[in-house]
Computed example of a mutant assay.
Amino acid sequence: MSGLREAGRVEVGGLAIRAGLWFLALTEVVVGVWALFAPAGFYAGFPAPGHPWVSLLPPYNEHLVRDVGALSLALTVALVGAALRPERRLTVVVLLAFLTATVPHAVFHTLHLHGFPAIDAMAQTIGFALQLGVGAALLVGVSRRRVVHSSE
C-alpha cells in the first residue's frame, strides 16, 4: 500500500484542481501583501489606480486593513498547502475556509455598491463571482472526484 493510503489520505489533485487552488492563492496573496504592508496604499488604490474600491466604503482604519491583509495571507498559506499536497480532507477544509471568508465578503460588497461607478461595480461583482465560482467548482470537484487505487 502507498504511504498516503495507509495514513487515510487520498490525493485528489488533478491539474485543474491544482491550477484552481493556485489561482485562489494568487488572488489572496495580492490582497494580503498589499493590505498588510501598505494599508494606506491599499485603502486608497485597490485594485488599481483610478479605481479605489476600498476607499469608496469609508472610513479608513489601518488596524482593520492590516487584519484583512493578515487573514488573506493566512488563506494563502492554506491554499498553497492544498495546491502542493491536494489530499481530499485537507483540500476540502481549505476550500470551506476560503468560502467561509469569501461568501460574506462578496455578499457585503454586492449589497454596498452605491457610489461605485458602473464599471467598477460590474468588475468587482465579476471578480467575486469568479472567486466564488472557482472555489465552489473546486469543492464539488474534490468531493466528487473518483479515486482509483492501483496495486493496493
Rank of each mutant, 00 (worst) to 15 (best):
A121C: 01
G45H: 15
A40E: 12
G13A: 04
A38G: 14
E11G: 09
A123Q: 12
E28S: 15
A25C: 07
G3T: 01
A121R: 03
A97N: 07
R144Q: 09
V103S: 06
V134I: 13
F108I: 08
P52H: 03
A136H: 05
H105R: 13
F42H: 10
L75Q: 15
V148D: 06
D67C: 14
E62A: 09
V134M: 10
H105N: 13
G69F: 12
P49R: 05
P58R: 06
A101L: 09
L71V: 07
H114S: 12
I17M: 06
F116T: 02
V29W: 08
V12W: 03
A129W: 03
L111H: 15
N61K: 14
V103R: 02
G69C: 07
A70T: 07
L90H: 02
V54G: 01
A123G: 02
T100C: 11
E6G: 09
D67T: 15
A78Q: 08
A19R: 05
V12Y: 00
W53H: 03
R5C: 04
L99T: 04
H105E: 12
L90P: 00
V94M: 04
R89D: 09
R88Q: 03
G69E: 10
V93C: 03
P39K: 05
R18Y: 05
G50Y: 05
A118F: 13
G127M: 02
L132G: 14
V30G: 12
L111E: 14
A121F: 01
S2N: 12
V103L: 12
S55E: 05
P39T: 08
G8W: 00
R144P: 10
Y43C: 03
F37V: 08
D120M: 11
A38H: 07
L99C: 08
G3Q: 05
G13N: 04
L24R: 03
W22F: 12
I126V: 15
G13E: 00
L139Q: 14
